[in-house]
């Protein structure tokens, strides 16, 4: 109550006549101020909220949290209190669920036709897309941090319960690289999703490529070279391990351009030009 009353009395003192004319039928009409373009941080908080405000996304978040807890604890019991190993275990679930999160984020507006509302409120579509991509990328970093936060106590407890010394060694570079890999995984989902604007197709492509590469890698020398340069799982392995060489960096760059930069650029062009209906 006090919140809405305070600005009212303030503007009454300033210009009573104009305010009276405008407030007919509406108590808070004095919040009308010259509209300013929507700032980016507002788009970002809206898109971040959209990640977790539907029934399906809530279910997915719960599944992700349970998966992290269960896989890290399970691995701790089986493999012993090794922090680096336990953190890496969470990556297996991330590799499947995070690209799906990315895909659903960019395709939902089209499958549910909410693009009609979103792009009517903010016609600068590239800004919306930027916010839409940034939100799940930040989520990937948060999810990685969460895995670390879970792995540390699990390592300590496992060591205590099994009565063996805990292995805490983990290079900061490897931890950073692992987080970076999770970010790349989300980015792949975003890029493929934005290019296809069709969730089922994008999910099938993202989840079946590891199997596909396993086959291609066995197709002689050419297959090996292809996998070495274009399979993001293979090229990101040195990044995860935290021991990149110059050649590794080049291979990672090539696969990133192929799986993320190119499809995302094409996707942005497609969404910007698309007729919304």
């Amino acid at each position: 109550m006090t919140n809405t009353d305070v600005p009212g009395t303030k503007s009454d003192m300033n210009d009573t006549t104009t305010d009276d004319a405008r407030t007919v039928g509406s108590k808070t009409a004095d919040i009308h101020r010259p509209p300013a373009p929507i700032p980016f941080h507002r788009l970002l908080s809206v898109e971040a909220r959209k990640l977790f405000d539907t029934r399906s996304s809530k279910i997915m978040t719960v599944v992700l949290i349970i998966l992290v807890l269960a896989s890290i604890t399970g691995r701790g019991v089986v493999s012993g209190p090794k922090l680096h190993t336990l953190i890496g275990t969470a990556g297996i679930g991330f590799g499947t669920l995070l690209p799906v999160l990315g895909i659903l984020t960019v395709t939902a507006e089209w499958s549910h036709r909410t693009a009609l509302t979103t792009f009517a409120l903010e016609p600068r579509r590239r800004r919306v897309l930027a916010a839409k991509c940034l939100a799940p990328l930040i989520t990937a970093v948060v999810a990685s941090l969460f895995a670390v936060l879970v792995a540390v106590p699990v390592t300590a407890v496992t060591a205590a319960v099994q009565d063996v010394p805990a292995t805490w060694e983990i290079s900061p570079l490897a931890l950073l690289g692992w987080t970076g890999t999770n970010v790349l995984v989300v980015a792949t989902g975003l890029a493929v999703g934005m290019l296809l604007l069709n969730a089922p197709a994008a999910i099938v492509i993202c989840l079946s490529t590891p199997i596909l590469w396993a086959v291609v890698g066995k197709l002689g020398a050419t297959g090996e070279v292809l996998t070495e340069w274009f399979d993001l799982n293979t090229t990101a392995t040195p990044l995860t391990a935290g021991d990149m060489t110059g050649g590794d960096a080049a291979r990672l760059a090539v696969s990133t351009i192929f799986w993320i930069v190119v499809p995302m650029t094409a996707g942005v062009v497609r969404v910007t030009r698309k007729e919304v209906s």
């Binding site: 809405t4 809206v46 405000d53 509302t117 903010e122």
Partner: peptide, 13 residues
């Protein structure tokens, strides 16, 4: 709520 956030309006709206 999403609309209100986007337009920068108070949640009471």
């Amino acid at each position: 709520t999403l609309g209100v956030m986007m337009l920068g309006l108070p949640v009471s709206r």
